[in-house]
């Protein structure tokens, strides 16, 4: 019994310790951000590895999710004779929820884990330490550009996911199942609101981008500098990002769409 209590105590202490370290780390990243204005090239290079390399995965997944939504939505809606609302169903599901959330989960798996592994290995091979000894702040040179690239990429990737998803729903609904094309778009346009739906979806994906990028760079920077430590940190990035995104999604949805 005592052992169990002790374990609980030490576990919660270490959780708080990590949380505190993570937050202090975030503050240090934020302090390092202004220096990036002079070095846009660093951010561009990271946008490539974080954003461009995730694009294929996001587009293919978005297309698939959209097509499945079109098919499933049609099967349900046709029972009520309202298959014209398919466009609305596909667009709202994607823009409000699936776009930001699924894109963030995929982002954590594709780009977040890579960021963690990269920074963790740079730490393990003393590259970060070496940089510090060359009077170069690794936070400014390595961490901050990756963090910013994550935040910029996330809303763009989520928008691509949603847009491609709507097209996927369109192909299935209009192309295969014979929903009227005009009705598909007009129903969608009349029910999807620019501010309430699209903008809130974008805000969600920006928040998810911040959280995913923060977790990824922190786990990398905080990793135990050996092979096992880096592999554990990579796993933690994916798991923690998934939890954080799903939890935040609930809170944000309640705040944004709760009063309707």
């Amino acid at each position: 019994m005592m052992g169990w209590l002790q374990r609980l105590g030490s576990t919660s202490l270490s959780v708080f310790e990590r949380l505190g370290r993570g937050n202090l780390f975030l503050l240090r990243i934020l302090a390092a951000l202004p220096s990036l204005v002079l070095r846009p090239g660093l951010v561009i290079a990271q946008l490539y590895s974080v954003g461009v390399l995730s694009m294929t995965l996001i587009v293919i997944s978005g297309l698939n999710v959209g097509m499945v939504l079109g098919l499933q939505g049609y099967n349900t809606l046709v029972d009520f004779g309202s298959e014209e609302s398919l466009g609305q169903l596909v667009a709202l599901s994607l823009v409000r929820e699936l776009g930001p959330v699924v894109a963030a989960l995929l982002f954590a798996g594709r780009a977040g884990s890579a960021l963690t592994a990269e920074i963790g290995l740079m730490k393990a091979t003393e590259q970060l330490s070496g940089m510090e000894m060359m009077a170069v702040d690794p936070l400014k040179r390595v961490v901050a550009p990756r963090f910013i690239a994550g935040i910029i990429s996330m809303p763009l990737l989520a928008a691509m996911f949603s847009a491609v998803g709507v097209l996927g729903g369109f192909f299935v609904g209009v192309g295969l199942l014979g929903v009227d094309s005009g009705a598909f778009w007009s129903q969608m346009q009349s029910k999807v609101d620019l501010y309430d739906d699209i903008l809130n979806g974008v805000i969600k994906s920006i928040v998810f981008g911040c959280v995913a990028a923060w977790i990824a760079v922190f786990e990398g920077y905080d990793a135990v500098p050996n092979t096992e430590g880096v592999s554990r940190a990579t796993t933690r990035t994916v798991v923690h990002t998934a939890f954080a995104v799903l939890g935040l999604d609930f809170i944000l949805t309640a705040l944004m769409f709760g009063d309707e």
Partner: peptide, 11 residues
């Protein structure tokens, strides 16, 4: 300058 044991080159 500090020359690390592994070199610590940027890979």
């Amino acid at each position: 300058s500090l020359l690390f044991q592994t070199g610590a080159l940027f890979t």
